[in-house]
Each structure stands twice: as structure tokens, then as C-alpha cells.
């Protein structure tokens, strides 16, 4: 198993996972912004009160500290929106900012797609 790029994850339709308040993404990235429900998350420091991020060899865990169960928060038509940058790309080049929409699929899958022009999301 090797670390995948975000592009590869999306083009190969590889799904993430969720368990309770834990989101497991099959890639590694630097995170700039997460919107879950009406919560805007910008603090990804160790002291951050909203999320805790931990990287494993091939994947990333995001724990939403204020949530008990992601399935309760993110409903049928909603998505978790993420702005992330691939590990090997420049954080300072705005063209490298990838905007992702994550929708949940029972029992534990996470569909990962790019946010389209039609979707409402402010970078």
C-alpha cells in the first residue's frame, strides 16, 4: 500500500471511512479549512479545540472533537467541505488549494469529490 495523491483518490473513486467522530481520509495533506455543518474550522494546531489530526503511513485521521457522530451532523444532502494541499505541493500557491466535498454513505463510507462550480462554498 502506498500513499495516494488526492487526484488519484478521486479519479480512482477510493472512499474514505467514518466511525463516530473519526474521519479517515485515504491521503495525506495539509489542511487549511474545514466546514462541517455551520462550524468553520481554521485552527489545526495541537491546541485546537475543534479537530485533532493525526497522520498514519497511508492515511489521515481527523477527529471532530465537538461531534459525537458524524452521521448525525452531516445529513443526506450535506457535505463536509475541506480546503487541503497535497503534501508535496506549495501551500502558498493558491492553485494548489484543493477544495473537497465529502459526503457520508452508510454504514461507514466517505465519498470524496472536488467541489464543483455549482456548489456553494467560499474558499
Amino acid at each position: 500500500m502506498q500513499t495516494l495523491l488526492i487526484d488519484e483518490v478521486i479519479s480512482q473513486n477510493i472512499k474514505g471511512l467514518y466511525y463516530g467522530n473519526r474521519l479517515i481520509l485515504p491521503f495525506k495533506a495539509d489542511f487549511l479549512k474545514i466546514v462541517i455543518d455551520d462550524e468553520l474550522i481554521l485552527d489545526f494546531s495541537m491546541d485546537g479545540e475543534k479537530v485533532e489530526i493525526s497522520e498514519e503511513e497511508y492515511f489521515t485521521n481527523i477527529y471532530f472533537l465537538n461531534e459525537d457522530d458524524l452521521a448525525e451532523t452531516v445529513t443526506k444532502f450535506e457535505t463536509i467541505k475541506i480546503v487541503a494541499v497535497e503534501k508535496n505541493q506549495s501551500l502558498f500557491d493558491i492553485k494548489c488549494h484543493k477544495m473537497l466535498a465529502l459526503s457520508l454513505e452508510a454504514p461507514h463510507f466517505v465519498n470524496i469529490n472536488y467541489i464543483t462550480e455549482e456548489m456553494l462554498f467560499i474558499d
Binding site: 455543518d37 455551520d38 445529513t75 444532502f77 450535506e78 457535505t79 455549482e118 456548489m119 456553494l120
Partner: peptide, 13 residues
């Protein structure tokens, strides 16, 4: 229209 609901990310919250 489910596509419209998806685009609006409709939620009862």
C-alpha cells in the same frame, strides 16, 4: 428535485 436539494445542500438544521 434531488439534484437541486444536493446543490443547495439542503438540511433541516
Amino acid at each position: 428535485d434531488k439534484e437541486a436539494l444536493r446543490l443547495n445542500e439542503f438540511d433541516f438544521e
